[in-house]
Amino acid sequence: MLSYFLRRLILVLPVAFGVSVICFLLVQIAPGDPLTAIMPVDATAEEQAAMRAAYGLDKPLPVQYGIWIANLAQGDMGRSIATGRPVAGEVFGAVQNSLLLAISAAVIAFPIGIFLGFLAGYFRDKPLDRVVTAISIAGVSVPNYWLGIVLVIIFSVSLGWLPSMGAGPGGSQDWAWDWLHMRHLILPAVTLAVVPIGIVARTVRALSGDILTMDFVQALYAKGMSRLDVLAHVARNAAATALSVMGLQLGYLLGGSILIETVFNWPGSGFLLSNAIFQRDLPLLQGTILVLALFFVAMNLIVDVVQAAIDPRIKRN
């Protein structure tokens, strides 16, 4: 098991390197001078050159990349151009909020998706299957930022049941596990859950439908096993693949919540990202994307290892 983990880890390193290169290049493809935002309008050529040297922008690109990576290794992601605060602190605070939202959405989506998918797989080509299939197609087709707005219209504007903005009363950013805060979580989490419900249901439907037609299921019935016990066998067979899909979905939820966070003013990484974009705060943009992408890479690694731990067939391949 450990050797499998180490082998996978070694495969991840070049990907992580590539991710860091892309994040580094993001700032390079941005039009305009990254320093214009903080440079005084009447700066002389010498002052500009001094500033450029101070930020290391006068060195060749590979050297700049080396310096950036070396700082990164020490947890230094540079300073936000807009606020002057260290990027690392801002990003990790925001990522915690995003993680809270992503995990809440996963807690809603995965059980519902599994249940619906199992129903559809069990009653394949029956009316129930068609209903579930329709739900999952609608789930993956809906632009979730629009769904968020529709839910706000229904539950905030029309019914007045739930708040539509922020992560706590009065726009507070400090999370607490009480009703006053948790009611802020409901609408964004439900909105974010819709796409993974569709994807998980679709996956589990295909998996359980296929497994149910396999010979061993017939054999289990033939030896007199009860329906419920047979389903437990089916579930175990489907678990590894289903878990890997869900693990990736959790990664997507974190990286893909940007639009939803914007709709609900949720103070997470997506919200930070859109602020960074509009203030042309490139170090902050770079740092946020790097952290989210590396989280996704780590998630992939965890999924692979867990999958291999559950299903010995995978390790053998």
């Binding site: 990907v15 590539g18 993001l26 940007i258 990202l273 943009l285 989210l292 992408a293």
Partner: peptide
């Protein structure tokens, strides 16, 4: 493979945000 390390939404927003 490197591009697969980014969720598609994130990659689109990252590039569009920078450009």
């Amino acid at each position: 493979d490197v591009f697969f390390a980014f969720p598609s939404v994130l990659l689109a927003i990252a590039i569009s945000g920078a450009l």
